[in-house]
Write a protein that binds this DNA or RNA. Sequence first.
DNA 1: TCAGAACGGAATTGTACGTTCCCGTATGAT
DNA 2: ATCATACGGGAACGTACAATTCCGTTCTGA
Lengths: 210, 210
Amino acid sequence: MTTAPMSGRKAQAARNDELILQAARAVFTADPGAPIAAVAERAGVGISALYRRYPSKEALLQKLCGDGLKLYIAVTERALADDGDPWEAFAGYMRGIVDADTNSLTIKLAGTFHPTEELYHDAVRSAEVAEEVHRRAVEAGVLRPDVTVADLALLFEQIASIKLGDEERTSQLRHRYLALMMDSLRIPPAHRELPGPPAADEELSARWTP
Amino acid sequence: MTTAPMSGRKAQAARNDELILQAARAVFTADPGAPIAAVAERAGVGISALYRRYPSKEALLQKLCGDGLKLYIAVTERALADDGDPWEAFAGYMRGIVDADTNSLTIKLAGTFHPTEELYHDAVRSAEVAEEVHRRAVEAGVLRPDVTVADLALLFEQIASIKLGDEERTSQLRHRYLALMMDSLRIPPAHRELPGPPAADEELSARWTP
DNA sequence: TCAGAACGGAATTGTACGTTCCCGTATGAT
DNA sequence: ATCATACGGGAACGTACAATTCCGTTCTGA
């Protein structure tokens, strides 16, 4: 770092730890095949700052994947702790997962490396809690029963596939389509107002000439 | 071709024309960044058979993109010609586009090269017919009016993001989620039976160790 | 003032892919 | 039957990109 108005090498190093993780998350979420140099650039650090912390790209990816999985589990457990209206608990869970934006990264990176023992354990755990959320919603009679947990996983992936420029706009659109989805999941079926404006023509056509 | 039980060099060449296009479509649909050698291998021909027909990879991609657009337009026009039940016409259109599987390729490839004049023209045309289909469905009162054409485009992209091994299984799952979507698009809102079995656990977990 | 941790970033190395080239082969005309 | 040639197979070439390593520099803490 060239201009760092902070003292204490350790403090800076700790700051870089976080900077690097954030950058890596952002970069790889946007493009799972991104070069490691892109992460360094985004974090505003040199490449060696990365290699000092992780022995290889794969190690960084595993870390990211693991963090994502843990976040996923945390969001799900939060939903399980929700004792309010069953539908709202379920809907909050769905929104939480979409916001966490942990699916695209975890899934797309999954086939990239050998899963750690811990990674595998967390994956199993996440499946368990997800199933519990699903079971509750079905048993409460608020979620249509012909939709399985696996269906929910694939719905998340579909929503994660939406990428339209701006990060904020992307999130907005994702919630729009999540809301649309929810209308077909809920018992009784009903149309609710969709959040956020639909995609404008320019937003779509912008992808035709880079 | 080493073992070709056909006579006539021209016949073989014509056959290869088709073979190559099919292979290219299949390969690039599965992976837009695939190497050109993969197309040759899939087609069962040598690389030079490809380069005899297309001066570069970009040229082949443009051809594919163009064909995809034309297919998209054809499917849409077929829907416009349907004078039966408005909802069924619309639903058939949606299914047709999903089956054509032209979105993933066209969109993902769009940013890869300079659009041809013709390509641009067809893109405009496709937007027009799509809008017409949408307009009809809304005016017939069968499609919820807060969903725009752009929304439909993005829904197609989401569905196209589903890729689960087998080509047939993938198609089955796509139709399952299309059906789910349709339940939230239709007026009046209602839950219909979903086609095809949901994803099995193994189908999802299989992606964790390649 | 000094040892060394932490960096930045250029150099290194390996690989993957588009494109070109050379050569064998079968075709269709003579 | 023979020959000129289009066609296609696949090795070879050149380049671009990306992971990793290396080295000189800077700043910290004693």
